[in-house]
Design a binder for these strands. Sequence first.
DNA 1: TTCTAAATTTGTAACGATTACAATTATGGT
DNA 2: ACCATAATTGTAATCGTTACAAATTTAGAA
Lengths: 133, 133
Amino acid sequence: MNIAHHLYSNNIKPSVQRIKIFEYLYNSKNHPTVDTIYCQLAGEIPTLSKTTVYNTLKLFIENGITSSLIIDGNEARYDAIMKKHAHFKCNDCGYIYDIEINDLKLKDSQLAGFEIGETNIHLIGKCKKCLTK
Amino acid sequence: MNIAHHLYSNNIKPSVQRIKIFEYLYNSKNHPTVDTIYCQLAGEIPTLSKTTVYNTLKLFIENGITSSLIIDGNEARYDAIMKKHAHFKCNDCGYIYDIEINDLKLKDSQLAGFEIGETNIHLIGKCKKCLTK
DNA sequence: TTCTAAATTTGTAACGATTACAATTATGGT
DNA sequence: ACCATAATTGTAATCGTTACAAATTTAGAA
C-alpha cells in the first residue's frame, strides 16, 4: 500500500511525519497510544513532537482514515483499520484483540428513527492464552 | 427500594453520603458525571467533598451496584442500573439513552475459549427528537 | 457515659493525558 | 530567490482523577 497516495486520496497532504505515523499505525496491529507512537518514532524522526502526534491523529480521524478507541479510561488508542470490528481486551496480558462482528441486534423499537453514526463494542475479560497457562 | 438495606446487602456500610449518592444515581436516569453528582448534592450535604464522590463510586463499583461508562473521551459517567444494556449518545442534544440489547452475535471461532467479563456497547449519532426538529 | 480504635470523610497537592497557543520551520507557487 | 501559507514544535495551561494525610465520625468495650 502506498501511504502517500492513501493520504492524498483522503485530502491529507503527505509529510514525513504524517507518512511515518500512518505507516506505524497501519503496520503495528497493537492499537498504540500516543505515547507508544511517539516513543517508537522518536528514533527515526529526532525532532518529533508529541503535539505533532496528537495533531496528526486528529487530522487522520477527521478525514476518516483512523479511528480512536478508549477501552480503559485513561488513555486513547488508535487504529488504522477502518472495517467495523469490536475489541477485546485481556485483563491479564493487556493485549487488545480485533474481533469481527457479524451483526448487532438491538430492540428495533427503541432506535427507530435514530441515526447511528458510530458503533463501539468493547469486551473485557481473559483471553485463551492467559486462561490456559 | 430501601437504599440503606440495598447497601448493607452488598457489603457496604451505609452513611449519609453513601445513601444520598446512591439515591441520586438511582433516581436520575441521566448517567451523571462526578461533577454533576457533586453539584447536585452539595446543597443537601454542605460539607461534601468531590473526593468522597470518587471514593464512594469506586466502592459501589467494587461491590457491583454501580457501573461506569466512558462514552466520550473526557469524563466518566455512572449508572446504578446493572441490567446489561447499551448506550446511545445523541451528538446534538447530548442525551444518553439506555438501549436494551437482545443478543450480541460475534464470530464464535475468535472468542472460543475466551472469558468475557464485561461487554460495553456505545452508539453515537442523532436521536429521533433532534432529527425531526 | 466515656474512652479508644477503626472507618469515613475531607481538602490539598500531585499526576497524567490532552489541548491551546505562539514561535519556528518547511512547503509551493510566482 | 521571495513570499504567503501550512506544518511542526515546545511550553504552558487545562481538566479529570488519584494520593495522601489530617480531621471527623462511628461503633464497641469498659
